[in-house]
Design a protein around this nucleic acid. Structure first.
Lengths: 351, 351
DNA sequence: TTGTATGCGTTATCAC
DNA sequence: GTGATAACGCATACAA
């Protein structure tokens, strides 16, 4: 392994000079600069990250801005991922402060983001559930050169350090495949959005589009009918009543794709109405879904590794802050297909 | 973060003394020993792994004993995983020497293992495909206190540092679920072993057992017929001929589970005979399988993350050698369900 | 039996 | 512009 000292000796300068060149701190003669850079290149110098991390025993304060797990248990997993990463990285000087907001309340998001802004953090991990509210903060952090990592929801064009999360469109395609495989040659399928403001959630639209595009491929187009259903509990009818209506008018529904983590609502309905033949695909390993996965009401859950999203988000910030490593600006986590039989590998994934 | 120095000050001794106590190097007064250990406990001392790795810039020589990828392309992935880990760990002093053997030749395994034994390595990663031949080496390494990690094939009772790999029985259950989900209320299914000496491969038996047990559960037992088929190309008939025979005598086969990475052989047969309605589940993301996965001849491939097995195997040795960390003695990697639509996350998984 | 000094590779400060 | 040098936390050789 080549050290700075090796480069220095070969170039007949001191380690201090080499260091200044390698870090672009100026105060060096141009010819020396050229020579040293050439030698570093030639020797294929790679800094020793251990030594670097050891010497810079600075504390880095990172803010994590996520939805409150007590409002929506889905957010428990990202929180755990963040905490796991913090645990591993705290000896390298990473400190994390978490800020929670209500996932259905844009104002609470802004309130939390304002708290973050008032504190001067070295890096920020954020799940920008609210598009419009997020933009101003992104601009501010970009101006101030504070690195921020997005996860769960992608908002391009604001140069985050990284986006970590799902490929929504692709997951819709996958859901299509799973229902197609489980249904006969011809079938009626429903895409159901539950308790969502669809127009404000581009990722739901992408999921639906992926699902529909799956069945638009050669030979499938006229054999499968795709319904789009919207369920909101705050209307005149309860959700089961609304479902009664849809299921009656559709005649016979063979498969259902729920675009968020609320598949358990459909599963419950299926169970009560004894419609077990309906294949059901949804998202996310939350407890109420797992219950129906284990009783075979839900066929498959697509897992977007929410814990991993939190974990890798913090790791990306650490790579940047501590190790000055460069990462890809985007990291899609695998779309894991979960069924009763492989579930436990994914919920015990603690190593 | 608590340092050795902090403990030393609190105990009114020097850092050298604390160090000797913490590492059990003796030459300390018993009362001092007690006091220091108490203080370390009380302060919750955690050694700084960075500093430790930095100072002990020893080179650790690790041997990796795997099957030759040019004999069976499945082994390309473990090899890549090993190389990826080596790349990450070489700055911490890990050097890996790879030894290849022919996966169908027990003698070549012994030859390779003998080479390993003659060299004095600090740690060994091994895929013990041949049970009987492996045992003597395990005993030797255990006697000499050389840590060895098993992957791909589990041989308990010899105290490896760790086993990393698949849970064969569970993967059989999973295959059962996938075929059950894709078939109608009643069906005939085949478990096919291809080119294997089954009696000598306990993991194939476990897979088959898991598969059968899936269909032994309540309500399924008398609706599904399970055939067991053995294919060997070195008999009088070609494999397609043998398949003709089985398929004819069975009447109608609706689904096939191939217990190793050779599902492509069945896929080819299905395609040529225009039996596309047959659902096919197999193992492993090798190129010939992927081709048929993409053309929908193969419905699902179960991935056992062979690259991850190599990678984590080396990591486990490094944790032990460099960081003196303790790991669980067993690590089952997730049984990933792969279909055309989520495939690319698993083959590009390089981050 | 105990304490001190030195070095690992990098960074940062300071004197020249 | 440049080159010594100290420091990060740990391990260890050697002096006491």
């Amino acid at each position: 392994m080549i050290r700075i000292k090796d480069i220095a000796e070969k170039a007949n300068v001191s380690t201090g000079t080499v260091d200044r060149i390698l870090h672009n701190r100026g105060r060096v003669a141009e010819d020396v600069r050229q020579r040293v850079l050439e030698i570093a290149e030639e020797l294929n110098y790679k800094p020793n990250l251990l030594a670097r991390a050891l010497v810079s025993n600075k504390t880095y304060h990172v803010a994590a801005l996520i939805a409150d797990p007590s409002e929506d248990s889905y957010w428990q997993a990202p929180k755990e991922g963040i905490e796991k990463a913090e645990d591993e990285l705290k000896q390298y000087g990473i400190r994390i402060t978490k800020f929670f907001f209500d996932p259905v309340d844009a104002d609470s998001f802004s309130t939390a983001a304002n708290k973050v802004v008032s504190k001067a953090f070295d890096g920020i991990l954020i799940a920008p559930l609210f598009y419009r509210q997020s933009l101003a903060y992104f601009n501010k952090w970009r101006r101030e050169n504070i690195p921020f990592v997005l996860f769960n929801t992608h908002i391009p064009d604001y140069e985050p350090l990284m986006y970590i999360g799902q490929d929504s469109y692709q997951s819709g395609l996958l859901a299509g495949k799973l229902l197609h495989y489980g249904c006969s040659e011809t079938a009626t399928l429903a895409v159901i959005h539950i308790e969502e403001d669809i127009l404000n959630s581009s990722h739901l639209i992408h999921k639906e589009q992926g699902f529909k595009d799956y069945f638009a491929q050669d030979g499938l187009a006229n054999r499968y009918e795709i319904l789009q259903i919207d369920l909101q509990s705050n209307s005149q009818q309860t959700i089961p009543q609304q479902l009664n209506h849809y299921f009656k008018s559709a005649g016979n529904i063979n498969g259902v794709f729920v675009t968020n983590s609320k598949a358990y609502i459909i599963a419950e309905y299926i169970q009560q109405r004894k419609l077990q033949h309906i294949k059901l695909v949804g998202y996310d390993l939350i407890e109420r879904n797992l219950h129906y996965l284990n009783s075979d009401m839900i066929s498959f859950l697509i897992n977007q590794n929410p814990k991993g999203q939190g974990y890798w988000g913090v790791q990306a910030l650490a790579d940047h802050l501590i190790f000055k490593k460069k990462n890809n600006p985007i990291k899609y986590l695998p779309l894991d297909i979960i069924t009763k039989e492989n579930l436990h590998y994914y919920i015990e994934a603690d190593s």
